[in-house]
Design a protein around this nucleic acid. Structure first.
Length: 1065
RNA sequence: GGGCCCGUAGCAUAGUCGGUGGUGCACCCGGCUGAUAACCGGGAGGUCAUGAGUUCGAGCCUCAUCGGGCCCA
């Protein structure tokens, strides 16, 4: 590319080949490190701190992950083009149970014991390897998508620097009194043998027993409280029965097979419960409010099987959550239920939890010791042990929680865990939610707000191995505890070097206590959600480094899927509020989920998963990017649809064609865009020649600036779908289908005419604008185009260009309005011609636009030459009201004539039909009455329809009717045939592979003397169009000369023979 | 069971302030042939999920129901 490099150097001939382009462009970016160059370029710009939500390193990315990163990339690319210094790093979530489960799988482990036998150190090495290997794969996949985040230096939750951010955060929580060690009921996975967070519980249908149990009331014979439960295995832990204070309960005497029992059941539910128990009849003994039942003592029907139950002082307690369902009395086991636990605290009930970490009954479980609670056989044994106390047993299918990684049904267990006391700062959290800008608004104001409002304390401890160790050291002697904030602090306090802050290494580090005892680390690790919760400061190296944190934090923007409402949006808010008292982000875009074409979740088991690579292989990265961004609003779920992908591909193909179409002509003419002294493209040049430019040039210049303004507005609301659709519509509708069609003849001009240069300048301007506007969405295609268009002083990459703002001086709204009218006119003419079976190639004598609308009249007047060209009409005229050649035809209205004229009616009918419609209408309009034959008629007796003259066809357009007269005249026929001949000679030139500027000699023999004469008269025009140095036209049936190429044609039924040869220029 | 979102032609989608429901794909018919393994025009196709309500007027506002999604109990 020499000094005079312009766009003439490369003529692009192939069609849009996304894969080839993307390969070239990615190589170009890699070789020049364009990403780094762009960051350097914007270094001094206004800062924009973005935090990447870290994907979990479990393997290949899926469509949703791709969409997520594409959204991020598009938004960040635009910020950079707007001059912002975008501060970002890719991030990865690399700890946690999901990886442990995968590694256990690889090693064939089934329990924690297997891991400990294998060795925790070896186990976490495997976990680390697994995470790092997956990270490498994922980074490559993201790079292939053209994602510009820092993948060379991503933040990784397993790094020491990152772990310290988590430690420090917990130390802050301790300092602020937000950390608590507590005995709580938690979701517990018996396979993973750990507590799991609410957010890690996945609900699925499960079938469980549905049983009604009689608890014997103490001090009364044959009197029972009837409870219902789906978890028989929790009955050994029962300590109370809860009733609602305001529900009315009935004591009924129920009889079955001659035996009478007295049962307490909510009054409204008596019939239903007794039916289940197959009681034959009953009497209500008395009714009382639930409040009056409080304190009633009862015994456990399992007292024999479970000795621990004998120590319990069972009684009835009150609770508001009791609903009028089942029996209205609720079995309460504080060791196995959240509500139960709270009720237990309220009434100071004992917490009985005879179940161990593996989900088996302990010795406290008496006869059931050693049995796995979720085993159906265990429930069976419990039910059997209930004996006659089991009033009814059935089955129920309901939603039951499962461990989100290993799918094991969870249980509730009361255990010692570490908590962040989120419930105490709920008001602050809600206040912070309100300060954040949410896209869309309801994501924050409704969805997230509701979630935060109902938030419970956050259980952050897990009894596992691969995670950030909880940095709490506790004294064996005095029970004092210390939360360590950094590795350095630990090394100092312990006097030991700590090369790896993971388990098992930190577990052996001890710290001397002030009391003289020794502090050991608690064995738990963090909930993995705590890892990502600290990302916004961990990614800045805080607390290790403070400068960047002080400069950039909090994040200007984050965006993740709607599932992160409970996840990352929340965990970050919680951790940040505990540590810093404020939200760690200023704005959040919540995007949707990627679903299949039927709106179903993509899942391996359904076999409906579409991998990003499938789309990339078939259509390319830019097509995928533009598709996912334009298919729907970011916050709606994406219903993946191959048809939609194809459509986007077609649109980009048209863009490619639009780009490459003018190149050969520009090359031929050595066109060089206007440049400033710095060798950069001078984008202000078109503004200076505007007055001299043709309407269509000024129109497309106006349109592209109007487009820029609209894009700006839509970007502000993150309406990425509207932005991308507007861009595609512009390319298709305005640029390809309209402007380019109009300027094509100007590009073909041979002489150096100003209107040709204007066309070049205009197309160049529009393409340069499009390069910028599309850069965030189709970065590869844009780079390829820009590489060919750029002037020698322009930046090396399209992504170093500044975002274009709309140039008000180029916007001409009245012209845009007028052009819209002309396009409607164009469509109407096409419709009318189709009716009249007259091809566009054949000129028509006259086109008339009948309208009363000033907009239409003015538009056609202003752009009359364009209208005539588009319509291929000798004249285009506008008439107000009706066109005088349109006649009225009078039709009798028999429904009126019949009753009025009786037997005379047929005569009147005939008279009306025979009348001059125009005259009759005029008379009726003028006088309200007229005489036809010898009858007096009034307007309601006659209907008028339009009568088009022979050869005239009409079509409607907004506010106007277009009439096209397709009548043939010798001149028109001559021109029509001439154009038919031209087309065929051009086709032959193309077959001979002639260059656009090569000359030919030609001969045409026509098998119809009249047509031959007509064509002969057009020799000059034909010769000019096809660059013929000589052109002979004769009539006959044989082509005498020797030609390089000959062809037989039939034109409108007339046989023609043509021969062409190359001629010297 | 609860919160939020979505439901518009075969498919996908737009619809701002409540004022005659648009667009793309597919389909049918046609055109163009110097963008050509392209491109363009025309046509047909609607119970705006269902049912009530508010209103002169509802795709839009209200309520209920049904279906889908995310999250929760």
């Amino acid at each position: 590319m020499g000094a005079c490099r312009g766009i003439e150097v490369k003529e692009v001939t192939s069609s849009y080949d996304a894969r080839a382009i993307e390969g070239r462009v990615q190589e170009f970016w890699r070789a020049a490190d364009t990403y780094a160059q762009v960051k350097d370029l914007r270094r001094s710009g206004r800062q924009f701190f973005f935090v990447d939500g870290p994907p979990y390193t479990t393997g290949n990315i899926h469509l949703g992950t791709a969409w997520n990163k594409i959204i991020k990339d598009a938004i960040l690319r635009r910020h950079r083009m707007c001059g912002k210094n975008v501060v970002e790093r890719a991030g990865y979530d690399m700890h946690g149970l999901p990886i442990e489960v995968q590694v256990e799988h690889q090693l064939g482990f089934t329990s924690k014991k297997d891991i400990e036998t294998y060795g925790i150190d070896r186990f976490i090495d495997r976990c680390r390897e697994f995470a790092l290997a997956n990270m490498a794969v994922m980074s490559e996949q993201f790079r292939a998508l053209g994602i510009w985040l820092d993948f060379d230096n991503p933040y990784q939750t397993l790094k020491k620097e990152y772990i310290e951010a988590a430690w420090w955060t917990l130390a802050q929580a301790e300092k602020n009194g937000m950390l608590e060690r507590g005995h709580r009921v938690v979701n517990w996975c018996p396979r993973c043998e750990t507590a799991i967070a609410d957010s890690e519980v996945e609900y699925d249908d499960a079938t469980d027993p549905s049983i009604y149990v009689k608890f014997p009331v103490k001090g009364a014979d044959d009197e029972y409280l009837v409870i219902w439960t789906t978890t028989p295995w929790t009955l050994p832990a029962n300590v109370a029965v809860a009733v609602h204070p305001e529900i009315v309960y009935a004591l009924v005497a129920a009889r079955k097979d001659g035996v009478e029992e007295r049962l307490w059941i909510a009054e409204a539910l008596v019939e239903e419960v007794l039916r289940k128990g197959r009681y034959q009849d009953y009497d209500v003994v008395r009714t009382v409010a639930g409040a009056d039942l409080a304190g009633t003592a009862y015994g456990s029907p399992l007292a024999d099987a479970v000795p621990a139950q004998k120590e319990i002082d069972h009684r009835v307690v009150l609770a508001d959550y009791v609903a009028l369902e089942n029996t209205g009395l609720v079995h309460t086991a504080p060791g196995h239920g959240w509500d139960d636990y709270l009720t237990g605290i309220k009434y100071d009930l004992p917490v009985l939890c005879p179940v161990d970490g593996t989900g088996r009954f302990t010795t406290r479980g008496g006869a059931f010791a050693g049995l796995y609670v979720k085993d159906p056989a265990t429930n069976r044994q419990v039910m059997d042990a209930l004996g006659a106390h089991l009033l009814h047993e059935g089955k129920i299918t309901h939603r039951y929680g499962h461990c989100w990684r290993c799918k094991t049904p969870i249980i509730f267990r009361a255990t010692e865990q570490w908590f962040i006391k989120v419930s105490e700062i709920r008001d602050t959290l809600l206040e912070e939610v309100g300060k954040v800008t949410w896209y869309p608004d309801w994501a924050g104001s409704a969805r997230f707000y509701d979630w935060v409002r109902d938030a419970r304390d956050w259980c952050i401890s897990r009894q596992r191995y691969w995670g950030i160790p909880i940095p709490v050291w506790q004294c064996d002697t005095c029970d004092a505890r210390r939360v360590i904030a950094t590795v350095a602090e630990l090394e100092e306090a312990s006097g030991q070097a700590v090369p790896d802050p993971h388990r098992p290494y930190v577990d052996t580090v001890t710290v001397p206590c002030a009391c003289g005892g020794t502090m050991h680390r608690v064995s738990d690790i963090f909930d993995v959600w705590f890892d990502s919760a600290v990302a916004s400061w961990a990614t800045l190296g805080y607390p290790g480094r403070t400068e960047e944190f002080e400069k950039y934090w909090p994040a200007d923007f984050i965006t993740e899927g709607q599932d992160q409402t409970r996840g990352w949006f929340y965990s970050q808010l919680g951790a940040s509020t505990v540590a810093f008292g404020r939200a760690p982000y200023k704005s959040v875009l919540m995007h949707g989920f990627a679903l299949d074409a039927d709106g179903r979740k993509m899942s391996k088991s359904l076999g409906n998963v579409v991998a990003p690579e499938e789309v990339i292989t078939a259509f390319g990265v830019d097509v995928l990017r533009l598709y996912v961004l334009s298919a729907n609003a970011p916050w709606d779920d994406l219903k993946f649809n191959w048809e939609g992908v194809k459509t986007v591909n077609r649109a980009l193909n048209i863009l490619w064609n639009v780009y490459r179409f003018p190149l050969p002509y520009m090359a031929l003419d050595h066109f060089e865009p206007a440049k400033g002294n710095d060798g950069r493209w001078d984008e202000t040049a078109v503004g200076r020649t505007l007055a001299a430019m043709p309407d269509e040039d000024r129109w497309i210049l106006s349109r592209v600036n109007t487009l820029a303004a609209g894009v700006e507005a839509d970007f502000a609301g993150l309406n990425l779908h509207r932005v991308t659709r507007a861009l595609v519509a512009f390319v298709l509708e305005d640029l390809s289908r309209w402007y380019l069609q109009i300027v094509r003849p100007r590009m073909w001009l041979e002489e150096d005419a100003p209107e040709k240069r204007y066309a070049y300048e205009t197309v160049y301007y529009v393409l340069r604008r499009l390069v910028c506007l599309l850069a965030p969405f189709t970065p590869h295609l844009v780079e390829e185009i820009y590489g060919n268009l750029r002037c020698e002083g322009d930046p090396a990459s399209a992504h170093m260009l500044d975002w274009p703002t709309a140039d008000a001086a180029l916007i001409d709204t009245p012209l845009e309005t007028a052009m819209a009218v002309v396009r409607a006119f164009d469509d109407a003419v096409a419709t009318a011609r189709q009716d009249g079976k007259r091809k566009l190639r054949w000129p028509v004598v006259e086109v008339v636009v009948a309208t009363d609308a000033a907009t239409v009249r003015e538009a056609v007047a202003r752009l009359s030459a364009l209208c005539a060209t588009r319509a291929n009409a000798k004249t285009v005229t506008v008439v107000a009201g009706r066109w005088e050649r349109i006649g009225w035809k009078a039709e009798p209205v028999m429904r009126v004539l019949g009753p009025r004229f009786g037997r005379e009616a047929p005569k009147v009918k005939q008279a009306i039909e025979g009348a001059d419609g125009n005259a009759l209408k005029a008379a009726l309009d003028a006088d309200g009455t007229a005489t036809v034959g010898d009858c007096e008629v009034t307007p309601e007796m006659v209907a008028f329809t339009e009568e088009l003259p022979e050869g005239v066809f009409a079509a409607a357009m907004p506010d106007a009717t277009v009439y096209v007269d397709v009548t043939l005249t010798p001149e028109i026929e001559a021109e029509g045939y001439a154009r038919e001949v031209v087309r065929r000679l051009q086709e032959m030139r193309r077959q001979r592979d002639l260059k656009v500027d090569e000359n030919i000699a030609a001969e045409i023999v026509i098998g119809d003397a009249r047509v031959a004469a007509l064509v002969r008269g057009m020799t000059g025009l034909i010769g000019g169009e096809v660059r013929a140095r000589s052109l002979a036209v004769r009539d006959g049936a044989a082509l005498p000369g020797a030609w390089e190429l000959t062809a037989e044609w039939e034109v409108e039924g007339v046989p023609m023979l043509m021969g062409i040869s190359r001629a010297e220029n």
